[in-house]
């Protein structure tokens, strides 16, 4: 195990197949020295929580473009809380209307990255906010 490296789970909750962003971010985080696990598409909230615990990650990045974020994010946050993992940094990206961002932040999503975000901004946010075990 590479002790000290930040471990990130990138996940695609819901049914949408748009994985360009998730894959670009996965590669950028890896190039920045993080350990990245990408789940692939069509993940349920339960699958994501389970993977996060199994992989013992420091960060979860959720990518969604279907518009189902208000339905699918809360059970992920809730699932982490139930397992005592509220310390995991959860961030998100995709097609998310600006009006929804405060709601998501209130429920515990630390940052929502809109289209056009530079991967460097995501990397520096994670490096600042996440602590590797």
């Amino acid at each position: 195990m590479n002790k000290g490296r930040i471990r990130v789970l990138l996940a695609k909750p819901g049914l949408d197949g748009h994985d360009r962003g998730a894959k670009v971010v996965a590669r950028a985080l890896r190039d920045a020295g993080m350990e990245v696990i990408y789940t692939g598409i069509r993940q349920t909230p339960e699958m994501i929580v389970k993977a996060a615990i199994q992989e013992d990650v420091d960060v979860i990045g959720l990518s969604i473009l279907s518009g189902a974020h208000l339905e699918l994010f809360p059970p992920i946050i809730e699932g982490l809380r139930k397992k005592g993992r509220e310390n995991v940094l959860v961030i998100a990206g995709g097609i998310i209307p600006e009006d929804d961002i405060p709601t998501l932040q209130q429920m515990g999503i630390k940052a929502v990255f809109s289209p056009g975000t530079s991967t460097e901004d995501i990397i520096s946010f994670i490096q600042k906010e996440a602590t590797a075990k």
Partner: peptide
């Protein structure tokens, strides 16, 4: 919508939150 495209009815558990979205 995605459930229709992936072969789930609107009352299937995997359709939750996705009905009528895209």
């Amino acid at each position: 919508d995605l459930p229709t495209q992936i072969g789930y009815d609107s009352d299937h558990p995997l359709a939750k939150g996705e009905v009528g979205k895209v």
